[in-house]
Design a protein around this nucleic acid. Structure first.
Lengths: 319, 319
DNA sequence: TCGCAATGGTTGTATAGTGCAACCATATTT
DNA sequence: AAATATGGTTGCACTATACAACCATTGCGA
């Protein structure tokens, strides 16, 4: 294990330890209620899923079913939950929150929210998206490492049109990191991306041009642009298409592409073109699924490393 | 509370809940030992600090001193710890790890590290720095919100010279976000930063020029550059000086400035100049502490918002 | 159709970690 | 020298937990 890697791992461990302590997960009771941590988590899960069986809660919380059974009994006695026997399976009791339970949950939520909000007050505003994205990626990776399954929290990613602050930097960064890793590109490539994108954003308002970003919270995790000017009249140039590694494989690329191509079709471009590099198979599949076909290939040395550049072309909708 | 804010808070809460569960903090025993979570945490703290009193451990873990006392008794009986009465205060027992304790701790560390490493395998490589930075900023903010004190994990920030992949994007992004918030700048400003920095990085090798980044792990959290060409011969131009909000106030700015000015003095520039905006008091203090004096002020409208631009000048070392 | 295994849930029992309160020994302040 | 504060221990009660045995219901296969 290389040394920086070791430092990364230890840093993550130290921070999560600290975080767990600060959030009070080692205290017997949680979130300003008189219920134990497991009961609070059960309430939260019930609030999220509506109605669950005891076994489902046990699986979800990683506790023995006997512990869960007793814990639920107390919550029912306290009037937080009701249990109704399932009508299609006499063994199962469906648990759900009572009005009182919903009030309790609301109080728990308010407490937790306030705690987080106060923490957010104590950090630089720019760092908030970072915290969110970091926690989420980590939680998902932990779940995957444990069980192979992908089922975990993923905040929704939305596609938004237009410039927003930081997009030039972020898109440049994503390109720089991705192509350094996958093609060995360096400073010259990153400078080209930065310059081109900076120039393009200055004429984003002109007809035919468009930029879409994928946002997770307020963090930019993907982008695509249509340059309607630089290839000549009637030609749409698809540029700066990239998806952050944190959300790759989640359909974000498809949605970005769809937004960009809907714009192309709506505007009436005769053709959409894009340049890419051989070997990026995931991207190629996306292109071909959207009607792009490989037009031309050539060796390119301009980026510092020798790569095979590929032109993909997609005809516009028949006018 | 605005809606996106709400979504951010809830997203952070969901992710941290998930993370705590995945890490097994709700299990009675932890990290593949037979010791309870609190004992494991105590071992870790002792490993970190070398020798501590029981009270210090209790404070650190947020537990009652009686619980800690008993827990430590067991660890001593198990041969993991030794206790020696302090020589300058008869009440205090100094606790430290025995050889056996260090072995146990090593096993705990190995287990935890493997867990994290496996999780890292399940995420995009680009996201690793993000996870680290996010957790760390959050843990620190939680600690500050709880106790006002700043004492918490902060991974060391190091200053490194030269270009590295992603720096153009990251520095552009940091500038864009910071000045959008503090001066209302928008796309035009961000484009200027991107273009200028991209151009500068292309001639970074030329004599007199220099770029330094502040790195936390592999994440870029600050930058400064000396452009030895654009103001004319003998003049150093300090540009792209910025520190990420996540580490602001931690001396990173000072260290960046020192690196840049050491370069200026070593190279023998007659004068170092920088342009900034009125109102950025923290930065101004840094400049003045390093020998810069305000030279000229003028109103500028070029960035989209009216601001007062300030020229600061620092003479070179007497040749 | 009947029996048997599997599943959902409950209860008995033992264990262990925890906090509170009272306590002792030592140090510090008045 | 007395009062107070601090570090640490012990008695006590509480509670969350796991394990194992158990019951009721369901579903499957012979």
């Amino acid at each position: 294990m290389a040394d920086p890697e070791q430092a990364l791992v230890d840093g993550i461990r130290a921070a999560s330890r600290q975080m767990v302590r600060e959030l009070g997960f080692m205290q017997a009771t949680l979130a300003a209620t008189d219920y134990p941590a497991s009961a609070v988590h059960a309430l939260i899960e019930l609030g999220k899923h509506g109605s669950m069986s005891a076994a489902a809660i046990a699986a979800c919380l990683g506790l023995d079913k006997s512990s869960v059974s007793r814990m639920l009994r107390k919550l029912v006695d306290a009037g937080e939950l009701t249990e109704t026997v399932s009508d299609h399976d006499g063994r199962i009791k469906n648990l759900s929150l009572t009005a009182r339970g919903r009030r309790t949950l609301a109080a728990v939520e308010a407490y937790g929210r306030r705690q987080v909000e106060e923490a957010l007050q104590h950090m630089a505003p720019e760092a908030r998206g970072l915290v969110h994205a970091g926690l989420e990626v980590y939680a998902r990776a932990l779940a995957q490492a444990r069980s192979g399954a992908a089922g975990a929290v993923i905040s929704p990613v939305r596609i938004c049109p237009g410039y927003r602050v930081g997009v030039i930097g972020r898109v440049t960064e994503m390109h720089g990191l991705f192509y350094a890793r996958h093609a060995g590109f360096g400073q010259y490539f990153e400078s080209q991306v930065a310059t081109g994108l900076a120039e393009f954003c200055g004429r984003l308002q002109r007809p035919g041009n468009g930029l879409w970003v994928a946002l997770q919270g307020e963090r930019i995790v993907g982008s695509v642009a249509i340059d309607g000017e630089d290839l000549g009249s009637g030609l749409a140039h698809l540029r700066w298409f990239i998806v952050d590694g944190a959300v790759r494989g989640g359909g974000v690329g498809q949605r970005l592409l769809q937004a960009a191509l809907a714009h192309c079709d709506g505007y009436g471009f005769a053709e959409t073109r894009l340049w890419t590099f051989a070997g990026l198979e995931a991207a190629r599949h996306l292109y071909e699924a959207r009607g792009f076909v490989l037009g031309e290939e050539r060796q390119g040395r301009q980026w510092g490393e020798t790569v095979t550049e590929q032109l993909f072309v997609r005809p516009g909708v028949a006018g």
